[in-house]
Design a protein around this nucleic acid. Structure first.
Lengths: 348, 348
DNA sequence: GAAAGTCACGAAAACGTTTTCGTGTTAAAA
DNA sequence: TTTTAACACGAAAACGTTTTCGTGACTTTC
């Protein structure tokens, strides 16, 4: 159980100074070839690696980025992480994660825990509770202390920082247009309450698509789910709501849902009511999760390119970190990731 | 863009020494009440927080644990992470992640990157490539340097460390017994090649269950999939193989699959061939992913309690870290997480 | 009034690096 | 032979903490 070897130990062993060892290992011209060889051989033998913590302290940068997300057991977020990790690793950074579990206080605590030197910058997506409370002090404080933040997906315009967002509006619009093109006359929308920014934007896309095709939106075709309940658990409640929707509007021949689960539920309910998919009802969801792909019939969806988002966010953050001393212009970017309509069996 | 405040700055501002500030903030009896109040008030005003990196260097522990997994876009692994994060956070630790992407070299690189001081210990699950190559030097080297490792799920007996594993054998056995109890006479097994330890154990469970019920196993009912191909992509290939299985063995009335995707595929193929589920064929999968729950018909599965695994692994690791100076007995634990058969619509 | 004790604080080392600057030795130039 | 330059290395500071030990100024005790 020997500890890792340090410069000091090498120095003592070889009877030279610590500085000499350090320089020899970094191939400094100050050191003679003889000494270099001797030191490097010894270091290799004992598998010397500089201590990251000491380096971090000296350089005042950790080469680590923190990512705070509401939930990790979720395809969208885990794909984002994959993207972040990919780029971070390629550029020599580590990734440390914090889960807010959709809670404001856990988000704050997690950020404070990491902001005290553990990381160089944040990539984060806000918790639902934070969105509801509209309390953004922890973000602003972090940034005034010189730690950059890149937000993704769930963002608000009040916060001045780089952002990576999905083109929710156009994604939704195109999906609904597709349904219209495919002959749907009565298209239902299953969405969330408005405080979740993405839900709002997708709803707007839905409305815009209808309007452009001279279809009057009907309030009774729009179902707003209260997603503060965990529908992974309360599945039946969700199904009941959707069943009501279908029963009260027998003309429905198309459904656009703002996420995968709602869409799947809609398909299930529709079939239960004797409707054929895509014959009688066509369905499009939002997200590129695994459910859509493996459902029967497989579900047409608006793909968000979650991994691209993660990659882009990581690039933005690292760019900022590494240019911090060259330019001090506080110009914040908003990168919009285009969506893609993936047509599967649930549409004609 | 002011930096975070340090002890030194407080000391200069208040015209006392750094030691005094440090002691005052930690409420040392050495310091007079007056001075304490003054220092504490000032620190609060400027929101002083000790720098984690400096603490890590001084204490030679980072209070961070590293987790290395093959893939994050995967329900099982993300649930494990959730469990790890939960416990880690509760006990004052951070979590840093590394993805091996099922590659040996990425696993090695990732571990080396973290082992140089960034973390206090590892929680990991081996990549498929590592399992194939049977090269475990990086694990052993890490451990000889005094850094503890806890392995989960994909483990090998050659490595001496704490382990948390799923009771694959009994889980599989019970599942197959359930099928037998439900009247199945000809039960197919869809599994992976043997080098993945968990696949092997589940296969053994299947065989044992048959044997105990005096059913002779038939080689033609066992389909071994080469999972080095990514079947998320090559879905049709997988379906073809399974279709062959059904066509060559029309007597099949039960299927046990070692993962969710294989099971889902089996259901899809069976229905395509005109078989009813669970009327003609009953199916049980392995894992507690989201697909099983939301498939139609929903899939009966053996749940692995992934989050429990993560929690247990984290507790094991932290226990070891925090007792490192009391006991030096190298006793390694193997914790077996029991499985649970979740019956849904794909069984009678 | 001297010896002993208490109080409140500061100096310095340590954790493991990197880097600047200084210095002694030797070789080349004057 | 003396001056200069090149060479090879070491001392020390710095990053931000915590902690041990030392010390000066009082207060108490005989």
């Amino acid at each position: 159980m020997k500890r890792k070897i340090t410069l000091k130990q090498i120095a003592r062993e070889l009877d030279v100074s610590i500085s000499t060892v350090s320089k020899a290992l970094r191939n400094s011209a100050e050191i003679s070839e003889d000494t270099k060889q001797k030191v490097q051989a010894f270091a290799k033998l004992y598998n010397y690696r500089p201590n990251n913590i000491a380096l971090s302290l000296k350089n005042r940068r950790t080469n680590t980025i923190g990512i705070i997300i509401p939930e990790i057991v979720h395809h969208f977020f885990s794909k984002v992480i994959r993207g972040v990790e990919l780029v971070a690793n390629k550029r020599g950074y580590n990734v440390i994660i914090g889960l807010s579990n959709e809670s404001f206080s856990k988000e704050v605590i997690n950020m404070e825990m990491l902001a005290n030197g553990s990381i160089d910058g944040f990539i984060l997506s806000m918790s639902k509770e934070t969105l509801k409370l509209q309390d953004y002090h922890h973000f602003n404080e972090t940034m005034t202390q010189g730690m950059p933040i890149v937000m993704f997906d769930r963002v608000v315009s009040d916060i001045k920082c780089d952002k990576v967002i999905v083109d929710d509006f156009n994604g939704a619009k195109k999906a609904v247009e597709k349904l219209i093109d495919n002959g749907c006359k009565s298209i239902a929308l299953i969405t969330t309450k408005d405080y979740v920014s993405v839900g709002k934007l997708r709803t707007q896309g839905y409305l815009e698509a209808l309007e452009e095709h001279k279809i009057a939106p009907k309030a009774e075709l729009i179902l707003k789910i209260d997603d503060s309940l965990d529908y992974e658990v309360h599945l039946e409640a969700l199904e009941k709501e959707i069943e009501q929707l279908f029963k009260l509007n027998s003309a429905i021949d198309g459904v656009f849902a703002v996420n995968e689960l709602y869409a799947l539920c809609a398909m299930k309910v529709a079939r239960k009511l004797g409707l054929e998919i895509p014959g009688d009802v066509q369905v499009i969801g939002f997200t590129d999760g695994v459910l859509s792909k493996h459902a029967t019939p497989s579900l047409s969806t608006v793909s968000q390119h979650a991994q691209d988002m993660g990659e882009k966010a990581a690039d933005l953050l690292i760019d900022k970190l590494e240019s911090e001393f060259t330019t001090h212009e506080e110009e914040f970017q908003i990168v919009v990731i285009p969506t893609e309509l993936i047509e599967r069996e649930s549409t004609k």
